[in-house]
Amino acid sequence: MSEKKPKKIKIVIAGPFAAGKTEFIRTVSEIEPVTTERKITDPKEKEKKSSTTVAMDFGKIKIDDEHELYLFGTPGQSRFNFMWEILGEGALGVIVLVDSTDPKTFHEARRIINFFQSRYPVPLVVAANKQDLPNAWSPEDVAVALDISEEEGIPVIGISAKNKDDVKKALLLLLELIKTQLTG
């Protein structure tokens, strides 16, 4: 008799280039994340990091014998936007990571939020990453810069994707939001 495959539950980790998506997944995944990184050739982008995700990253957390949580990281560069569409399908929720030290990426983050809100109106949390760095904008300022109004119901949380407790907090915030929508 063939073994029954666990059911997949999907959360999408989106965000602009170099926001820390791969690191976020790596911090909590129970498996070594599967990545599709390629070396960066653009000199401007190379200043920030040497490789980038071109299709997706994924990490996995086993919930029980029948269910697994998959964390799918989207590519950050806008030329790979078509992957957002593919990865967003069937997602339980979305976490949009923002590099709090780099305001020039804030507008791109808002574009990503707009994309997911219009295509997949599932619960969404913004994680203002790199709060451990000295020039990080506060989560409150990031929220204003992203034009997130209270009515939108998008919580913004400050995190460092290197810190497991912070990543857990962001995931739990999203799951609580999902719970509210289920019970509300």
């Binding site: 799951l175 999902i178 929508q181």
Partner: peptide, 20 residues
């Protein structure tokens, strides 16, 4: 669009929260 009702049961969600 109005937020989509999440496609997960409360029991499974509770398990997921505990796991995280």
């Amino acid at each position: 669009k109005a937020p989509k009702k999440p496609s997960i049961s409360l029991d499974l969600l509770a398990k997921l929260i505990e796991k995280i």
